[in-house]
Amino acid sequence: MTAPDPRPLLTRALGQVGDLVAATPPEALDAPTPCDDWDVRTLLAHLVGVHRRIAHVGGGGLFSEVSSMPDVAADRLAAELAAARADVDRRWGLDGSDAPVLDRELTVPWGTMPGRFVGFGYVQELTVHAWDLAAATGRTAGLDDALAAAVEDTAHRVLPAEPRGGPIPFGPPVPAAPDAAPTARLVAWLGRDPAFAAGTLADR
């Protein structure tokens, strides 16, 4: 059975990240995030790298040819993310073009597989990092839980509770409340504490 087209969800995941980044004020750049040793500035640079990688592998390149942590000036982060997003749209056909990416074999950190599976992997990564940014800046209330719900079962299947650490860049699962929303459940499974809150900017 052929996996469904991930691009509608990928479009939403990219849009969610883009909106959060565009609305992140300069005074938030030094705030801590749920990612160990990363502040918001570091997370935003990583998101630029992730966008560039999505575009690059969509065009047939190797993920390792693009840094996941580029050196981007603070005042260029939003602009560089937007430029990379435009490349993603073009190479993945999110702009309506007929990009033959879904059945092309792509190489990403978690293996070599058809683009339709890679797309869902990037939906997961973008959804989790959207939560990281939202949690760091007090904006988790508006997140798109449907994105997390769409990839939650796959996350449990491909990332078992053990082993973690080393080449698997996730800590052990964190307990989530029984009534937790899908995004909270997803980030908890991937080792984030759903209770993380740096507070709103007004609190700092």
Rank of each mutant, 00 (worst) to 15 (best):
G111N: 05
G119A: 09
T107N: 02
M1N: 07
L126F: 05
G93P: 11
H156E: 13
L147G: 10
V57Y: 06
R192E: 11
V118M: 10
V158W: 13
M113Y: 00
H129W: 01
D71P: 08
I168W: 09
A55V: 02
V174P: 02
I54K: 01
P167D: 09
A149E: 13
D36E: 15
G138D: 07
P167Y: 00
V17Q: 04
R204H: 14
R116G: 04
V128R: 15
D132V: 05
A155C: 12
I168D: 02
R76I: 04
L9A: 15
W189M: 09
P167A: 03
R53H: 07
V88Q: 05
P26C: 04
Y122L: 08
V48T: 14
A13T: 06
W38D: 04
L44A: 11
L81D: 04
P178C: 00
A149R: 05
Q16E: 15
V101A: 14
G111A: 08
T112A: 13
A202P: 06
A161W: 05
P26T: 12
V151F: 09
H56V: 03
V17T: 12
D179P: 08
L102R: 12
P25G: 05
R41C: 09
L9R: 14
D36R: 15
V158K: 11
V101G: 05
R91D: 08
D153F: 03
S97C: 07
A202M: 04
L106Y: 10
R139W: 03
H56T: 07
D19N: 10
W110C: 04
A28E: 02
P32C: 15
L143H: 06
A13C: 03
P26A: 15
A136C: 06
D5L: 02
G61E: 11
A135W: 00
D36W: 06
T24R: 01
G142F: 01
P163D: 03
L94F: 10
D19Q: 15
A134H: 02
E65T: 11
A184I: 01
R12M: 02
D193K: 09
D71L: 12
S97A: 13
E80I: 03
L81K: 02
V57N: 07
L62E: 15
W189Q: 14
L106E: 13
